[in-house]
Structure formats: C-alpha cells, structure tokens
Simulated scan of single mutants.
Amino acid sequence: MAGEIPDLEAQVRTGTGKGAARQARRDGMVPGIVFGGDKDPLPINIPFNKLLTMLRAGRFKSTLFNMKVDGHEDVRVICRDVQRHVVKDLPTHVDFMRLKRTTKINLFINVEVAGADNCPGLRKGGVLTMVRPEIELVVTAADIPESVTVDISGLEIGDSATIKNVDLPAGAKPTIDRDFVIAQVSAPSGLASQSDDEDEEEVAADEVPTTDESEEGGAEE
C-alpha cells in the first residue's frame, strides 16, 4: 500500500447555490463537492492558494488524496473535475469522488531499479537512463503500491527494460496497452563518439578507389 497519500484539508460549506459559492470565493476559498460512496454529497470549501499550488504541481486529477473535513471521517477521494474561469483560467469549483476499497483508479506509480550492481552494461561503463521514472497504472483503491521495480541485472550496453520486465502487483495493469521502454543502458558519450568516428573512417575508406581502379581509369584516359 502506498505510504504517502497526501492529506487534503477542507471545510464544510454552509449553504448551497450560487450565492454561497460566490461568498466562498470572496473569502479566498474554492467551493467544491464530494460525492459517491453511498453517502450524501458534501459541499466543501478549499483554500484557494493551496488548491492552486497543487494544481500547478501537476497530475492533480490522477492523485489519490486523504480528505480531512472537520466533523467527518477521513475519506479517500480523487478529483473528477476542476472548473476554471474562462478568462483567468483559475479554479472556480472542484469535484471529488469518494472511493470504495474496490474502486479502480488510474495513478502514477514510481519505478525503482533493482540489479544495478550486477548489470554487465553498467560494469562496462554504460549509463542508465530512466525513460519512465513513473508509470500510470490501473489499480484498486485498497491495493495501491508505493512503487514498482524493474530488474536491469541482465542488460548489456544498448539493451532496454520494458514494462514486461516489471513485476506488477496483483490486479494492477498499465494504462498503455502495449510494451514500452522503462529504462535503457546506453554507451557513455565518449565511447559513442569514438564509435561514430570509426564508422566515418570506415565510410571514407570505402570511398577511396583502389590502386587497380586508379590505373584502369588512367589507361582509359
């Protein structure tokens, strides 16, 4: 289970309708609603500055939050919609959905690397590049992994590890329905440059005419 589900603090919004929403905005809050989970919808307010900071951090709609509201039990929620001002593009309303333990959701999960000490490519001076330091998975709310692991112990220089090399938790699957690269071992920049120079020398050598070809050309003249 993921150990770091961020808290999201909110306040109960007294009153409903446009009037209460406008007052919330004047007070520096963003009105919202929490729905689902076989419970009545709960009108809330969230501090504008805090919400804006989280939105700018990215992936707000794919992050699982532990919502804390005074007078109510903590509940896990995920954002389902953020309404914005048509001109200023600032948040004006936000919707959250309560999650049951069996609810399927899309989340970005960190990728950890195993087998680096035994990787032949790295031992030969190769450089590890994490193409996807995190991957988006479909998981259940009750079984969210803190991370997944990719094993690179068998990679040589030029080899890649794909999603097939990742041991995913039971019930989890990638949102991308194809094999894709997670990490790769590349040649160090110096070795790559040397290889390119050698290739250029080989091409240049192939373009130089042989002695026989030069003599034949001279005879024809």
Rank of each mutant, 00 (worst) to 15 (best):
M1T: 11
I5P: 01
P6S: 11
P6T: 10
P6G: 07
A10D: 06
V12L: 14
T14H: 08
T16K: 13
G17V: 11
K18I: 01
G19K: 15
G19L: 07
A21L: 07
M29K: 14
M29Y: 10
M29G: 00
V30S: 06
G36A: 03
G36V: 00
K39C: 06
D40K: 14
P41S: 12
I46D: 02
P47D: 06
K50R: 15
K50M: 09
L52K: 12
L52G: 04
T53H: 11
T53S: 12
T53Y: 01
M54I: 07
R56T: 11
A57W: 00
R59C: 00
R59Y: 07
F60H: 12
L64M: 14
L64S: 04
F65L: 04
N66K: 14
G71F: 08
G71M: 11
E73W: 01
E73V: 03
V82N: 01
Q83Y: 05
Q83K: 13
R84M: 06
V86N: 10
K88I: 10
D89L: 08
P91K: 11
T92G: 01
V94I: 15
F96A: 04
F96R: 03
R101C: 03
T102C: 06
T102I: 12
I105A: 09
I105H: 08
F108L: 15
N110K: 15
N110M: 11
E112I: 07
E112P: 01
A114Y: 11
G115R: 04
N118L: 14
G121C: 07
G126H: 00
V127T: 08
L128Q: 04
P133M: 10
I135G: 03
E136W: 00
T140F: 00
A141F: 01
A142R: 04
D143G: 01
I144P: 02
P145S: 05
S147H: 15
T149N: 09
T149K: 15
V150G: 08
V150L: 03
D151F: 08
I152F: 06
I152E: 01
I152T: 06
S153K: 09
G154I: 03
G158C: 12
D159M: 15
D159L: 07
D159V: 07
S160W: 02
A161S: 02
A161P: 07
T162V: 01
I163W: 08
I163A: 01
N165T: 08
V166Q: 06
V166W: 06
P169V: 09
A170R: 09
G171Y: 04
P174C: 08
T175M: 14
D179Q: 10
V181N: 04
V181M: 05
A183E: 07
Q184A: 13
V185F: 04
G190Q: 12
S193R: 15
D196F: 12
D197C: 10
E198T: 10
E201W: 13
V203E: 12
A205Q: 14
A205E: 15
E207Q: 13
T210N: 04
E213L: 11
E215N: 09
E216I: 02
G218H: 11
G218W: 13
E221G: 13
